[in-house]
Nucleic acid binder design. Structure first.
Lengths: 334, 334
DNA sequence: CTGAAAGCGCTAACAC
DNA sequence: GTGTTAGCGCTTTCAG
């Protein structure tokens, strides 16, 4: 059915070597020969077999992206940027959806089931840092968000503590005193949530406000529904907040939804700040005030890290910890 | 660095054949031998090389998914379901983002740059049907949404005409008489938009309502911003609608946003119906009434089509045209 | 500038 | 139940 290098060679009356040279442009080929070969390629509809090429090269040109959920707006946007950036570097992206499953994450890291990818970008959710550090990854690895304590992986993330502190400080600065936090995930090893909680705490400290346990709502997941549930609990709770810092925009939008349902005015009665700057937030009512990580830089720098390690395997530079910029985007909810 | 089948064989004191049997479970192996081999595998951290396996098998176990935009909620949700379903079938998914670029789509279809995938699921945007039909795809192909006139590709989609007709009929049924449509894309070969426009027209016909050109707003793209722009034009136009059927939820949410900004009450002054049933629509204010395609079935049936053709290459059954169910979900905007 | 041939790691047909 | 080996399609060293 599909033709091989050899078929082209026969048809063009040259050796496979020459055809290979034409295809990959490695060595110089006489113009006349090149033309003959190109014609044969076109006539036969020849396409190189990537499996063979990979086997030979020891590289596949494919990198893996492992994220908890593709349908989440934040990861969707980030994945889009990563795919674009990868294409610029002639890489193809395989996307794996872990669904917050520890086994899935572990399998990816160890290359379980076979080595396909040249490198892996992973946003770990279920694995705790200790295990991350212990697992010797089969390929160069970039961690998004989560920090690997003494692991051999690069890491790219915003300064979560500082960003969260800014968010809560902004709320305190507008006179709010009962500032709730939505988004802790005590049942998971969600290091990112811990960092944001820490920033929140610091901002309260600085503003001289108490950290009320009743105002810190854990969530099962990071979807709108979880934000909605948390907000409902807050409104029904012992102390009703006058502001909410949600650890993700989705949580914030769920909270906003409940506020509308209950007739609570936003931002008059309750101000809301989210985190992620997803597109939906720009079109909510009112538009969502949020912390915006520089997603394009996350994508670019992650791939740069991979490139550095993939193209110089002997590379022994210690794992890097890259911080990308963020900014607080003031819109309608706070 | 990384160990091969042969290394394991040497260490376990058996032949590669036996190791291969243990790994793939093809043939029976004596328990004692199996244990020895397994130990050697563990000690060496052996992982099969997929490139070699693919080269041998003539298959890669990878299928391609080509969608215009990963960050769009609809495609994000669909991609998530497809990845899940593919894993159930032991396939890996490569996601390609065409960004509505005709060249990118063409390259994918012809397998330009090399044959990596065993099959391709594509949601064509930029290519017109004639070209789609002409392009002999290098691998089994499933088209999402768009119909391929006499092409060799299966197609999976909702009945767009019927679905759109239901949406507009619902609006007419609640007494609306000036029903706008947002979402035609005259500059692209967006067959899906044409079908939805056709359904819209039919419903107006049936209800005895005129089709006012001023109420049919084309859009440049299908994002919230485009829906917002279209809505603004409608509100400033010669005839202000009392209802809007948007061809996607994103467009609808953009329109809803502008309604809020302008103090137009939804659904009292203007009712809105969207299409896609993305998660954001459940949390807008008010929640979005929409046409919900059965996304899970789209994912399942697309992969079933691919499986049928990949596993029986001699297969000559004519291209199938599969219609998946949809339903009108009444929420707050209409 | 071009040809011949080795070999990437794996599977399976063929022996025993 | 296990060993030996050819060959998947490609790149590249070595000759010419």
């Amino acid at each position: 059915m599909s033709s091989r290098l050899k078929d082209v060679a026969v048809r063009a009356g040259v050796s496979v070597r020459t055809v290979s040279n034409v295809v990959s442009g490695t060595a110089a080929v006489a113009p006349a020969t090149r033309r003959r070969v190109q014609e044969a390629i076109d006539e036969l509809g020849y396409r190189p077999n990537l499996a063979a090429r990979s086997l030979r090269a020891g590289r596949t040109g494919i990198i893996g992206l492992a994220i908890p959920e593709l349908h989440s707006p934040y990861f969707g946007e980030l994945a889009g940027l990563l795919v674009d950036e990868a294409r610029r570097r002639s890489w193809t992206v395989i996307i794996d959806q872990t669904r917050g499953d520890a086994d899935a994450e572990r399998r990816l890291l160890t290359g379980g089931g076979g080595r396909v990818v040249d490198g892996l970008i992973i946003s770990p959710w279920a694995l705790d840092p200790a295990e991350l550090a212990a697992t010797g990854p089969a390929v160069p690895l970039v961690l998004l968000g989560e920090r690997s304590p003494r692991g051999a992986a690069d890491r790219v993330a915003v300064d979560n503590v500082a960003a969260a502190e800014e968010a809560t400080a902004h709320l305190a600065g507008t006179g709010r005193t009962r500032i709730a936090a939505i988004g802790l995930q005590p049942h998971l090893h969600n290091g990112t949530a811990l960092l944001r909680a820490e920033g929140h705490r610091r901002a309260l400290d600085r503003a001289g406000l108490p950290l009320l346990p009743a105002l810190c709502r854990p969530v099962a997941a990071l979807h709108r529904a979880d934000g909605a549930a948390a907000m409902a609990e807050l409104l029904d709770g012992p102390v009703v907040p006058d502001a909410v810092f949600a650890f993700s925009d989705e949580l914030a939008l769920g909270a906003l939804h409940v506020a509308h349902e209950r007739g609570v005015r936003v931002p008059e009665d309750i101000a809301i700040v989210g985190f992620d700057d997803i597109e939906d937030g720009r079109y909510s009512h009112p538009p969502l005030t949020t912390v915006a990580p520089d997603k394009r830089q996350i994508a670019e720098r992650s791939l740069q890290c991979l490139a550095d390690r993939i193209y110089s395997p002997g590379n022994t530079v210690p794992p890097q910890d890259l911080t990308v910029p963020h900014r607080l985007v003031l819109r309608g909810t706070a």
